[in-house]
Amino acid sequence: MNDTEILEMNRNVIEEFRANGGKVTGWVPLILLTTRGAKSGQERINPLISIPYGDNYLAVASKGGSPKHPLWYHNLLAHPDVTVEVGNEKFSARARLLSDDERAQAFAEAAKVFTEYDELQKMTSREIPVFLLEREK
């Protein structure tokens, strides 16, 4: 699936998510992650698999095992202040790229929620990045 097809699919998922209190037919539980474009500064919304992590959430940049990072990865590095939607809840958060043991532990927890992450990691030579989406207090 190319980036244009992904964007169109995402638009449909976002619409259904918001119309149905966070539920999307045929999908695992999702969150909506609102970022600002790394270059454009424009608002971008991406549906991601819901990976609760304590009181926070994880964002796993798997892009289906692609050799490239998803577009939102670059947005988080450039503009880590984000908005997260879970069900009917919406909150501000700060994204922090995890590394080393912290990343390994978070990835293992994410793979417990969505077991395909382990297979996606095997499909790519890049280490799949994991961000902690920390709620603003």
Rank of each mutant, 00 (worst) to 15 (best):
T34P: 01
D101Q: 07
T25H: 11
A95F: 00
S125Q: 15
S125C: 09
G54T: 01
A110T: 09
P70L: 07
E116M: 11
H79S: 07
E109T: 06
E43Y: 05
I31W: 03
A38P: 03
L58R: 13
P70C: 04
V24Y: 12
A19T: 05
E127Y: 00
S92K: 15
I45N: 15
V86F: 09
E15K: 15
T25E: 14
F17V: 03
L33G: 10
V60A: 06
D100Y: 10
W72L: 08
P47C: 08
R36D: 00
T115M: 08
L77S: 01
A104H: 15
L97C: 02
R103E: 13
P52Q: 03
Q121Y: 07
L97G: 01
Y73T: 10
T34M: 03
K68F: 14
D55M: 09
A106P: 04
R44C: 04
K112N: 05
S125T: 15
L58S: 13
E43M: 05
E43F: 08
K122G: 07
Q105W: 02
L30S: 02
N56T: 08
W72P: 06
A104K: 15
V130L: 01
P47Q: 09
P47H: 08
P29W: 01
H74E: 09
Q105I: 11
I31V: 14
S125V: 14
T83W: 00
L97M: 03
L48R: 13
T83N: 01
Y73R: 08
T25V: 10
L58F: 12
E15N: 12
L33R: 05
A111V: 00
T35Y: 01
A111W: 00
S66G: 06
L76H: 01
E43I: 11
I49N: 04
S125I: 12
R94F: 02
A111G: 02
F131V: 12
R96T: 15
K39M: 04
E43K: 12
A108P: 03
L98N: 02
S66T: 07
L77E: 00
A93W: 13
S50P: 06
F114W: 05
E102K: 04
A95L: 11
S50M: 13
K122C: 08
I31C: 03
P129L: 07
V130R: 02
L77H: 02
L58E: 14
S40N: 06
Y57S: 02
G21A: 11
E109V: 10
S40K: 08
L120C: 03
Y117S: 03
A59M: 13
G54Y: 07
V82N: 12
I14P: 05
Q42T: 15
I31F: 05
I128G: 06
K122W: 07
T83K: 04
L77Y: 02
K112W: 00
